[in-house]
């Protein structure tokens, strides 16, 4: 049975699903790594120097935001899948 959606929209939905799956796998792995490796040093920083902790925290948040966005774009390009744009 043919789809009611135009080809461009079907392609976008497919890209979205692929992107979601990739993100899901990546963020699960990443979350496990974050909890495993960052927990102790961040806790120590929180106790010893709140200013350094604040700066380190913001740097981590910014870096993670950029990383998650770029990594997925890179992987999609490697897979030969056109990006959603």
């Amino acid at each position: 049975m043919p789809s009611d959606h135009p080809p461009a929209q079907r392609f976008s939905i497919r890209n979205l699903v692929i992107e979601l799956l990739l993100y899901g796998i990546l963020v699960t792995l990443y979350a496990l790594l974050v909890l495993r490796w960052l927990s102790t040093p961040l806790q120590a920083l929180f106790r010893e120097n709140l200013t350094v902790y604040a700066l380190a925290g913001l740097a981590l948040i910014v870096a993670q935001g950029v990383l998650l966005e770029r990594l997925t774009s890179f992987l999609l390009a490697r897979l030969g899948v056109q990006h959603f744009e």
Binding site: Y30, V34, Q64, G65, L68, E69
Partner: peptide, 24 residues
């Protein structure tokens, strides 16, 4: 974030985990 973190009101680990979902 900076001002609250200096006051000891930010758990970066929680924020990082939340952000993984928020990014998607």
């Amino acid at each position: 974030t900076i001002t609250h973190a200096i006051k000891g009101n930010v758990d970066i680990l929680i924020a990082l985990i939340m952000q993984t979902g928020a990014a998607i």
